[in-house]
Simulated assay, not measured.
Amino acid sequence: MDAQTIKVILADDHPSVLAGIKSIITTTNLQVVATACNSTEIIKLLDRGVCDVLVSDYTMPGGEFGDGIPMFEFILRRYPAVRIVAMTMMDNPAILGQLRSSGIRCIVSKTDDVSLLISAVHIAHGSDKGEFFSPTIKAIFNVFGEAKGLLALSQRESEVLRLFVSGMAISEIAGQLHRSKQTISSQKNSAMRKIGVARDIDLFKYAIEVGLIPSRRIENKK
């Protein structure tokens, strides 16, 4: 009995990595139909409708459509039928949490066994609600459980929070995002309620715990 062939596009900006992954994940029912090294090439391939699952690195600079979360969100909007498996070297729980909340439900760390991509592809292809996290990613989510508060934030709240803990004042954020100071303040307060902190100093401590800012920066906020 022949299993359905799953057509896969591999994307990574290192040709040697692409070759290595391709040799490992090509199985009787996984077919790597194309490879790409940036977002421009990915979009050209997806426009042809050639794949079921995109396996892509998180960081691939130089493409017309960027990389990371903005690239993945664009692909999810434009090609809702395509499933995505993200590969990454990142261990920042806040960014990984944001990646998960953006709709990427299969994430594999490049520090884990590359053969895990086979399971990730099958799960991604089988259901738009299935999740697969390689051991390193799963451990990060388990250890930094408090980072899950970020998943409840709206995109605008998350944006305001990140700018605020980076050191920007409310007025500066308002100017950069072209919103009123009242709106920015309201979004900041809403984000703080959702993650369960009441004071700015606690917000900075939280940001350190989940990896949004380095610990040394809090000393300037006391």
Rank of each mutant, 00 (worst) to 15 (best):
P80Q: 05
S39K: 09
A36Q: 03
T88N: 02
I95S: 08
L18C: 06
V82S: 00
K44I: 03
F204W: 12
F164Y: 14
L99T: 05
K44G: 03
E209D: 14
S190H: 03
F144G: 04
T35D: 06
I173Y: 09
L117Y: 03
Q187F: 07
P70S: 03
Q155H: 14
E219V: 14
M192D: 08
F164T: 07
D113W: 05
L116C: 08
E131D: 12
G145A: 15
G130D: 11
D13H: 03
H178R: 15
M90I: 09
T35E: 07
N189I: 00
N189W: 00
I208A: 10
M1A: 15
I75P: 04
G97H: 07
F72W: 07
R100G: 09
D57N: 11
R100V: 00
G130K: 06
S23P: 05
G149A: 00
I9F: 02
G49D: 00
L99R: 06
L177M: 11
L10Q: 02
K221Q: 15
K22P: 07
A34M: 10
G68I: 02
M1F: 09
P135H: 09
E41L: 00
A191K: 03
A207F: 03
I69E: 05
D128I: 14
V165H: 01
Q31M: 10
R162M: 10
T5F: 04
T26V: 09
M89G: 14
P61S: 09
G149H: 00
G62F: 00
R83E: 08
R162C: 04
A81H: 15
T59P: 01
L212H: 04
L46D: 01
D113I: 07
L163Y: 15
K110G: 12
L117Q: 01
S215M: 11
I123N: 12
G167D: 07
R105K: 14
F164R: 12
P214S: 12
I118R: 11
N92A: 05
L153T: 04
Q187T: 04
G20H: 01
R77S: 04
I123D: 13
M168W: 14
A19T: 14
S16M: 13
A86C: 12
G196K: 06
I218Y: 03
R162W: 02
F144E: 08
T88R: 01
M90V: 04
F72Y: 13
P61T: 10
T28D: 15
A207W: 02
R217W: 12
I170W: 03
A198W: 12
A198Q: 15
T183N: 08
F132Q: 05
R100F: 14
A191C: 00
K129L: 13
A36P: 11
V160T: 04
I9M: 05
G103W: 03
I123F: 13
P15D: 12
P61K: 10
R78N: 10
I218K: 14
T111G: 15
S134Y: 07
S23Q: 08
I43W: 01
A207Y: 09
G63K: 11
M71Y: 07
G126A: 14
I118S: 02
L76W: 01
F132T: 00
I6Q: 02
